[in-house]
Write a protein that binds this DNA or RNA. Structure first.
Lengths: 95, 95
DNA sequence: ATAATTTGGTTTATATTATAAACTACTTTA
DNA sequence: TAAAGTAGTTTATAATATAAACCAAATTAT
């Protein structure tokens, strides 16, 4: 009846990050922080979890003398997001 | 951009319970336990939280010599569920 | 020049949540 | 009357989320 919800994605902040990355394909840490209205600490942790899960790739480099963290969704991440969305339908009555 | 998700509802089991109660209006503990495939302990705790939040009413009685717990969604619960669903749209790109 | 502030984060500590295990109280069946 | 089943609750533990504190370097103000 109810499909299990991927615990990696069933988190407000991680879901927001994935939601952004699904549409823009690539985003900076600071951009994600601003868009999700999250604290840097929380975002840092959640990005690590998404990376560990293989849902995003994280590249660290320097830009204009400052460190820059770039996040990019993976194929696996896209798949997981899609599955999560359809699984949710079973709870919302919208599917 | 992203609407906050009601933490009471952003829980797999509590959401499943609410999803059932939205459609059937009233359900027994054992029915919820079976439909959600949860353990009694977990369900007991989550029902209490939904009750504390004012999202459901809980009635305890005896039926055929056995204790019986009946759950019913409240107006507030229906409203909260609806808000949760529309808030989720902002994450899923489906709204 | 150097002290204070800002940028872009990470790490660590704490509070919250979810879950399972253990327990209660009673009923039914062997 | 002992064992097993029903219908839960309580308690302990593991997992999560979040905030606070911290770090390293850059910039700006004095």
């Amino acid at each position: 009846m109810f499909k299990d919800l991927d615990p990696i994605l069933h988190s407000q902040l991680r879901l927001a990050v994935m939601s952004i990355l699904i549409s823009v394909k690539e985003a900076e840490f600071t951009f994600l922080k601003e868009k999700t209205n999250s604290t840097a600490g929380n975002l840092s942790v959640q990005i690590q979890k998404l990376k560990e899960a293989g849902y995003i790739d994280v590249t660290k480099q320097f830009k204009d003398n400052y460190p820059q963290t770039i996040c990019k969704i993976t194929k696996q991440g896209i798949k997981a997001f899609e599955i999560y969305v359809t699984s949710l339908q079973s709870y919302l009555g919208t599917g």
